[in-house]
Write a protein that binds this DNA or RNA. Structure first.
Lengths: 143, 143
DNA sequence: ATAGCTGCAAATGCTTTGCAAGGCC
DNA sequence: GGCCTTGCAAAGCATTTGCAGCTAT
């Protein structure tokens, strides 16, 4: 009787469960909620606060600290990527392949489609170092 | 007698004075000090705190708030450029021409020489917007 | 059982702001 | 004199941390 009820509630989390377990993360209730919101649809760009707000709108309330902890755990596990494009807040991107971003006048992010931007030449890295990543940001303004 | 003494002390500030006045900024004592440190030599990348520390080492002590005010005034006047490459602090760059940056493992910035990096293709900006700037960051790691 | 999470609240670090006093034109 | 800037301290924000209690394995 518990079983039946539980399975109805938990089925939607099955994908999230696999995702977390596969990444070596404990599938806690909080993380499952977050993963479901993050990875249900296509690529997303959001801040911890935006995500906490979404959680809240879905009827659960998570402390911001927990949301940060989870997001960092996800990022460490390779499920998310942190993007630093403005000095004030951290964006988390569910799209983890190398790609670049538009930043609009309000500071919102959008992916630049793969292949739409291309480098013709890269400098050599300074002595004793190597290039780890290339990040291109195109800042937009309204016409 | 005042005259002579003053001129000896103020001569080093002549260039800074012209710079500020030319940019429409009042050449206050604090700004002159800062401008002298910032623009004496080649391109520099620093944070408000680093600059305040330098001021202190030169025998004057400026509140951080004043340093921030001055840096923002300089940036508004086009003497500096703010660079957001990490989510925690704001870098100020004395090099105002369009150019790109290396960010090393410690978060320190270095200019990428003009021409060492080149774009082959840019995406179209989304509807109703246009590209204002292109910012490329090459993150480095130690080998 | 136990290593790892969560919740909460306090702490942190950078940056901004308010406002009275001071300085430049 | 009038407006802008400074100094100082307090406030603001996003983020992190400490720690007791909980939970997944």
């Amino acid at each position: 009787m518990e079983m039946t009820h539980a399975s109805v509630e938990e089925r939607p989390y099955a994908a999230a469960q696999r995702l977390l377990t596969g990444a070596g993360l404990r599938p806690t209730r909080q993380r499952l909620h977050l993963a479901r919101l993050l990875f249900a649809d296509g690529p997303r760009h959001l801040t911890a606060e935006m995500l906490a707000q979404e959680v809240y709108e879905h009827g659960l309330k998570l402390p911001l600290g927990t949301v940060y902890n989870a997001l960092h755990a996800f990022a460490r596990a390779g499920l998310l990527r942190e993007v630093a494009v403005d000095g004030t807040r951290t964006w988390f991107d569910t799209h983890t392949e190398p790609h670049h971003h538009f930043v609009d006048a309000n500071g919102r992010l959008a992916d630049i489609p793969a292949g739409a931007i291309e480098l013709a030449r890269l400098p050599a890295a300074p002595e004793g170092q190597e290039i780890q990543s290339v990040e291109i940001v195109l800042r937009l303004k309204r016409i």
